[in-house]
């Protein structure tokens, strides 16, 4: 198997608060292969965005990476100096944020922001940077890019601004792009266009994408593999088709069945009973056990680790641990 582009191992992110330390991420592990699109799904507060922030080294203090490793092409990036990390940001890992209306500095033209970013990472003249910037804007689908590049962000619509944001994230040709809910703040009508642009341009350049979203539709259309987070823990990782059609983890199954489809003839949407636990009240054992219909003996006692399954899948659930199942014969 080829070497993963990004490898996250047992990542723990903690936030010290007055009422004790909150674990936002608890031993999260996953890989992203070169050129791959990994979808990261989960409910609000499951730790999707924190994972993205941890990778790019921008966790808001006092939050911090307490343990674990993040490797980019084998090189550790979670414990390097801030200056070394700064050089990786933008250059090797790009990031697209959720809200294009607030992601751009209102006081600078698009050209100024693009050229500044390009020249931070690539040694080139102002004119050359400008040429690259225009080409990039053209590529992300801004009409009359050469003219519009000198406009200010407020001259652009939300969808156009997100295209500019994508251009900014990609302007130094990063190997990995972390897209944190890139379409959530947009009109439904432009969401698919933006995803299309992001996917195509990354495929062209061979950049891998970590797509953070709670929109399963977007994941189904875009991602190669999908990782499901629950309460700061990885529940299931696998190729997107298989995970969607035959989810292994009961939480994933619940998540998939709660997606409305046009062909489905049911009156009510299926929902998972209960709510995700708060970070200071995660139950012992599997974090999902109080909501799980299939919970049995070990689920309330011991936390399940990710277990490799056939077809490159991994699932953290005791149901797939033969030894545990035998211990509790009545299941």
């Amino acid at each position: 198997m080829a070497e993963p582009l990004l490898s996250v191992r047992d990542l723990v992110v903690e936030f010290p608060t007055r009422r004790g330390i909150l674990r936002a991420l608890d031993r999260v592990s996953f890989d992203i292969m070169p050129g791959e699109v990994l979808g990261m799904v989960g409910e609000s507060g499951a730790g999707k965005s924190i994972t993205g922030a941890a990778i790019i080294g921008l966790i808001e203090p006092p939050g911090r990476i307490a343990s674990g490793e993040i490797r980019l092409k084998g090189q550790r990036i979670d414990n390097i100096t801030p200056e070394a990390m700064r050089k990786i940001r933008g250059k090797r890992i790009g990031m697209v944020f959720q809200d294009p209306l607030t992601s751009l500095n209102p006081l600078y033209t698009v050209a100024q922001q693009l050229i500044e970013t390009i020249r931070t990472h690539i040694d080139c003249s102002e004119a050359e940077a400008r040429k690259r910037a225009v080409a990039l804007l053209d590529r992300v689908g801004i009409p009359a890019a050469a003219r519009r590049i000198d406009d200010y962000p407020h001259h652009f619509s939300g969808g156009m601004r997100q295209r500019v944001v994508i251009a900014l994230a990609l302007c130094a040709e990063p190997e990995l792009v972390i897209a944190d809910e890139p379409t959530t703040a947009l009109d439904v009508s432009v969401q698919s266009q933006i995803i299309e642009v992001l996917k195509d341009i990354c495929a062209e350049r061979g950049a891998a994408v970590m797509l953070i979203t709670h929109d399963m539709g977007v994941i189904a259309e875009t991602a190669d593999r999908v990782a499901v987070l629950y309460a700061g823990r990885m529940a299931e990782v696998g190729p997107v088709r298989e995970v969607i059609t035959e989810a292994m983890h009961p939480y994933t199954a619940g998540l998939m069945s709660s997606i409305p489809t046009l062909t489905q003839e049911s009156d009510r949407l299926v929902q998972i009973p209960g709510a995700m636990p708060r970070l200071n009240a995660i139950p012992t054992g599997c974090a999902f056990n109080p909501r799980c219909a299939k919970a049995f003996g070990p689920c309330t006692v011991e936390r399940p680790e990710l277990i490799a399954q056939e077809g490159g899948r991994q699932v953290a659930c005791w149901l797939y641990d033969e030894a545990k199942r035998r211990e509790v014969p009545h299941v």
């Binding site: 790019i56 921008l58 700064r86 050089k87 990786i88 940001r89 933008g90 250059k91 790009g94 990031m95 944020f97 809200d99 607030t102 992601s103 751009l104 500095n105 209102p106 500044e116 970013t117 931070t120 990472h121 944001v165 900014l168 994230a169 130094a172």
Partner: peptide, 13 residues
């Protein structure tokens, strides 16, 4: 603000 976060995420000094 987001645009400062985004500026940091682009690796600006």
């Amino acid at each position: 603000t987001d645009y400062i976060k985004f500026a940091r995420a682009r690796g600006l000094s």
